[in-house]
Design a protein around this nucleic acid. Structure first.
Lengths: 241, 241
DNA sequence: GTCTATAGGCGGATAGAC
DNA sequence: GTCTATCCGCCTATAGAC
């Protein structure tokens, strides 16, 4: 039992030090960017010696991978929590809520957002282990569309003939129970959502858009409409598009 | 006259060396990213000594600024040239041609694209001198919408009441001769366009979208529709959206 | 405009003692 | 797990000779 306690204490200490390392690394991410993330600097700031960090993360890239997975999970959890709050609303409103949650997280964690959705870190390739965390928001959006589809509240966006083969391939991969028109529109809307957020975050909207919250809400609503969701509240405006 | 010739030769040499420095810097941008761009490494590769570069670029950031302006200009020129080719076509087709040109340039110059539209370089702030070059593609798109508006070929996207003040502010800034509905939709489409390109370029479409050219063409066409452009050829599909 | 030399830093990663 | 010591590399920027 005393050996159990010891092991437990060691495990706890390891978890705490690991968390401290990641916290400090996140701080440096904000200051210098992922490309310059340095184990040495992290160690210095924590009052450790650089070689000690290698017991926690075998290399700089492993630390980066941990930060990426944490960021995807934090974003995914934020989006899921926001969705839970409005899970009784109609699908279009749930869509908008998730979009706004993603934007809110991005504004609150700009450097982590850049880490996962910004330019790739040169010389670093994310391992497959990041995929589950990276998929969370996408799965949430698919779930909303699925609910709308089952409730017959989903219009089919247009799909030109030359895109149909690719649309069916994507559908088989991502959501075989949804129409190819929907899946294709979703993938496009997904990318466009991150375009809106990225432009705001990375300064492209400076001196262009001022009331960004309102602008974004409207853009997210139009994206919802684009994938076939029509909310009762916004039906009038959306139909006139 | 001999002094003129000498001065001319010196000026030419300066231009050539400046170009060589930027070319080598672009090569390193591709390899290591903007954050690690190093005057020393550039000098080494050119067979010069690092201190010599300071006669051409007073600091690393000035070199970066030159690369950014060059990238915006290269993109802008590519987009303008592509637009010239189809300037007789209807506005929707010209819109799509410009979008495809932007994507084509991005795929051909991924690291320069990341430099201007990717995550900001930590510690670097672009000076105002980059603005004119950065505006070229936007002005091109505004011009297409202006032609469509004057030709009465432009539908008004929906604009909710709470967005109208911001829409009118943006319109006064960007294109006072266009309807606020159009300008608002354009700004959103502009961001969404870069979202599509960024996702393809930065790997988010890996294992998701395969036939990216077709996918993009369709997405660009739907963006055209979203800003109010309806091409005769695509009228049927677009109207059913 | 280019050179050498120099100041004063920074980094990743490993070996071997404790 | 943490330490010291070490290898070997990198950087920005300047001074001063030519």
């Amino acid at each position: 039992m005393s050996s159990d306690t010891t092991r437990g204490a060691r495990a706890r200490a390891r978890i705490e030090v690991t968390a401290a390392i990641k916290d400090e690394a996140r701080r440096q991410l904000a200051a210098d960017g992922a490309a310059k993330l340095s184990l040495r600097a992290v160690a210095r700031e924590l009052g450790m010696v650089s070689s000690a960090l290698y017991r926690y993360f075998p290399s700089r890239d492993d630390l980066l991978t941990a930060l990426i997975i944490d960021a995807y999970d934090s974003l995914g959890q934020t989006a899921e929590a926001a969705h839970e709050e409005v899970v009784e609303a109609d699908p279009a409103q749930r869509w908008i809520a998730v979009c706004e949650a993603v934007r809110g997280w991005a504004l609150g964690h700009p450097h982590e957002y850049a880490l996962i959705y910004g330019s790739p870190v040169p010389g670093y390739t994310a391992p497959e282990t990041t995929v589950p965390a990276a998929s969370r928001v996408g799965l949430l959006l698919i779930g909303i569309l699925r609910d709308a589809h089952q409730g017959l509240g989903l219009a089919k966006p247009p799909l030109p003939a030359d895109l149909r083969p690719e649309a069916e391939r994507m559908t088989a991969d991502l959501a075989p129970d949804l129409p190819p028109e929907t899946v294709t529109a979703l993938v496009a809307a997904w990318a466009q959502l991150y375009g809106l957020i990225g432009f705001e975050l990375f300064g492209q909207f400076n001196r262009v858009v001022e009331d960004r919250t309102t602008f974004f809400r409207h853009a997210a609503a139009r994206l919802a409409h684009g994938v076939g969701l029509v909310s009762p509240q916004q039906g009038r405006a959306a139909k006139s598009a």
